[in-house]
Design a binder for these strands. Structure first.
Lengths: 238, 238
DNA sequence: CGATAGTTTGATATCCTTCAAAACCTGTGG
DNA sequence: CCACAGGTTTTGAAGGATATCAAACTATCG
């Protein structure tokens, strides 16, 4: 089985055999987390970089009055804060959404690889810059779009990102997110997310099975979402 | 007069004489822009990195139906997309808000400095990571806070950032932004921004002179804004 | 089988938008 | 130096999108 980090970064560059060996050698220490646990909390100064191997996680922040904003989703192959040693202290938390497996890469190993393998270093920076681009699009989403478009846009993005790492079982697309997580992501309330999802269902764009959202008509979603995937900076090959 | 880039990056690290010389030598080609012009447009593949020396600029994105979301403000000392050569193509535009002066640094010079001066390279990455942290906080702001807190939060941030680069004329704090720009920043309408600013004025927190917002009570603003400056990753010395 | 978490429903409140027009400022050209 | 144009701020009224509160329903799991 291919290293999920390699699979992800390969959509940016082509690695040498030596690079590939190194990418594998980094993934020694495996850890398991249960749904709901935090990988990292605000204020932490972690000495490991986490690579998500199985399951989903999210970045989030809490406000003083107890509201939560989800800032990003992490799917297998995504790294948590490769460059935390530059910023010193976490300004947000990272929590695991369902039972998950991660690889912990010691900070020093990371630093070393960045120095000795410029190809890998650049690919890691690419991933960081794409994360930032996604964040920008989320701000547009929450700031400017109505509830229906907002949810549709999120689904389009997840669909493409999962596809990028081969996690789209023959077009079937299951989002393991609760409506309250979707609410915290889009800046809406649970109740309103529920209403809005029903609209999407009535239009035949999605349906739900076992509490999972199934996307039926990705083209239709794209249309109402005003979705332009350029911000994901995917390989045109794909 | 001190190089504004140096002043900004100095709040992350201390530079050697050689570093400082290099930072100065990068700033050769000066360009002037008029209010409203775009420095860079979506889809561009710029071959220069711009350093803002005078005036304000903003990153922004337009939606299909003509709405605009402002994604970040750039003030003197801020760089536009140091690492664009990694991402290849701009996924957003950068426009100048008032008459501004920039320094254009050729891509190759940038690349070179990154290779030969690891200290500067790391400082530039620091700036990029802080930009990302700001973006996260903006998402929290737009997603979770009510209009009053949202505007107050933005003002608190700008106040601190200007202070960091010594642009706070003895506590006087003039924001050269129109209400419609504030609206595009916060995801509100112009009308509602106007109402909200009046609330802040009634409470004596801010006032307006010549279309500029003057902050009177930064502590008061912080309180209603739920403002925690940790995300700016400022030097604790400051 | 009960406990717990997630989904759905309904009714009401409110925040914010939309549309429209007046007032105000600033710069420009006659 | 005044008049006018264009952008900005302000005001008002009305509607809509989303929030809030509360409770019923449903699925899952030990």
């Amino acid at each position: 089985m291919i290293n999920p980090l390699t699979r992800k970064l390969s959509s940016f560059t082509t690695f040498s055999a030596d690079d590939l060996a190194h990418l594998n050698s980094m993934c020694q220490k495996v850890l398991d987390f249960r749904a709901g646990q935090d990988l990292i909390q605000e204020g932490d100064r972690p000495d490991h970089v986490f690579l998500l191997v199985r399951g989903w996680a999210c970045r989030y922040k809490l406000t003083a009055d107890g509201r939560r904003q989800i800032l990003a989703y992490l799917i297998p192959g995504d790294l948590c804060d490769v460059h935390i040693f530059i910023l010193k202290e976490m300004d947000h938390a990272i929590g695991v959404l369902n039972d998950a497996r991660v690889v912990a890469i010691p900070k020093d190993v990371m630093r070393d690889v960045m120095r000795t393998h410029p190809n890998i270093a650049e690919a890691l920076w690419w991933a960081t810059l794409v994360d930032e681009a996604v964040l920008r699009e989320w701000l547009v989403n929450v700031g400017q779009r109505k509830a229906v478009a907002r949810l549709a846009h999120l689904l389009c993005e997840l669909w493409l990102r999962l596809k990028q790492v081969d996690m789209l079982g023959n077009g079937e697309f299951c989002v393991p997110l609760t409506q309250s997580q979707l609410a915290d992501t889009t800046g809406l309330t649970t109740v309103h997310v529920n209403h809005t999802l029903q609209q999407l269902r009535k239009q035949g764009l999605v349906s739900m099975q076992e509490r999972k959202i199934i996307v039926h008509d990705i083209a239709g979603l794209r249309e109402i979402a005003d979705f332009n995937p350029n911000y994901l900076h995917l390989d045109p090959r794909t």
